[in-house]
Every structure is written in C-alpha cells, then in structure tokens.
Amino acid sequence: MDDLTGFQRDLLYVIAGTEEETSGQDIKEEVEQYYSTEINHGRLYPNLDTVVNKELVEKGQLDRRTNYYDITDKGEEVIENRREWEEQYVDF
C-alpha cells in the first residue's frame, strides 16, 4: 500500500467496506461524502483503474453501461498489513 496515494487508499477502503460488488457511482458517492466535495470522473476512474491494475480490486460488468468493483484477496491482505502497521503508532 506504500505505493498508493491517499485517495487510492480511500477508494480501496470504501470498496472493501461494501458487502457486494459496487458500482463506480456508488464508490463516488461514498468518497464524496467523506471528502465533502464533488469528485469528478477524471479523478475517480483513473484511480480506480490503478487499484485494478495493481490487482487489489477486481473490475467487472454489471450491465452494458455499469462496471462493478470488488476487493481481491490481495487487496484485503494489503489493508490488513496497513492496519497492523498503523496499530504500531496509533493505539486507541
């Protein structure tokens, strides 16, 4: 995860937190709520493609116009490693 931007890491966390395959639009809405600002497609989709290319997220098709994103085992492992690292420094 050390080679991801903070935004890419946030996308990964949002995708991991969903119960099922989620659309790019659903991810966008969650991230916009957290950032309290509009996230444009030119920022969202290239960053989603990055986490897909790193095999942290799987991308598929829900229908002809809508893709879904789902966390991979590798993505879950990366998040777990990050959380363990964070716990060394932040223990509430």
Rank of each mutant, 00 (worst) to 15 (best):
L11C: 08
D49W: 02
R65L: 12
L12T: 05
V31K: 01
D26W: 00
S36C: 04
K54Y: 03
L56N: 00
R9H: 08
N47M: 03
T37D: 02
Q25V: 07
W85E: 11
Q25W: 02
A16N: 15
M1R: 07
T18N: 13
R65C: 13
D26L: 04
Y68V: 07
T66I: 13
T18A: 13
V90M: 10
R43E: 14
V31Q: 00
N67C: 09
V90R: 12
I79T: 10
E87V: 08
V78F: 04
Y45L: 07
Y13D: 14
Q61D: 13
D70H: 05
D49Q: 08
Y34I: 14
V31G: 00
Q8D: 09
N53G: 10
T72K: 02
F7Q: 09
D49T: 11
K28N: 02
R83F: 08
E84V: 12
Q25G: 11
T66A: 13
V51Y: 00
S23I: 05
R43K: 15
L62R: 15
F7W: 06
G42H: 11
D91I: 10
E20I: 15
T22N: 05
F7C: 10
E77C: 09
E21Y: 08
S23R: 04
E84A: 14
E38A: 12
I79R: 12
V51Q: 01
E29R: 08
E55V: 07
Y69M: 07
G60C: 11
D63V: 15
D10F: 05
Q61T: 14
R83K: 15
R65K: 14
K59T: 13
V52M: 02
N53K: 12
D49N: 11
L4H: 03
S36F: 03
A16I: 03
T18P: 01
Q25P: 01
P46F: 04
Y89P: 06
T72E: 05
R82C: 13
L4E: 04
E55N: 15
I39N: 02
N53C: 03
Q8C: 09
T66G: 08
N67K: 12
V90S: 10
T50R: 06
E58H: 08
F92K: 11
T5S: 15
D70Y: 05
L44N: 07
R43Q: 12
F92E: 12
D63P: 09
V78R: 05
I79Q: 08
R82I: 10
N67D: 13
I39A: 04
Y69K: 04
Y35W: 06
E30V: 05
T66R: 13
L11Q: 01
D70S: 07
R43C: 11
G75C: 01
R65T: 14
G6D: 10
N53T: 04
E86Q: 13
E55G: 11
V14A: 12
Y13I: 15
I27E: 00
E29Y: 01
S23V: 06
R43W: 06
T66K: 14
G75Q: 00
V52W: 00
E86W: 07
I27W: 00
N47K: 06
S36A: 07
E20C: 12
Q33W: 06
G6R: 05
I27F: 00
N47Y: 00
E76W: 05
V51R: 01
F7G: 06
L4C: 04
R82W: 03
F92Q: 11
V57L: 03
D2V: 09
I39Q: 02
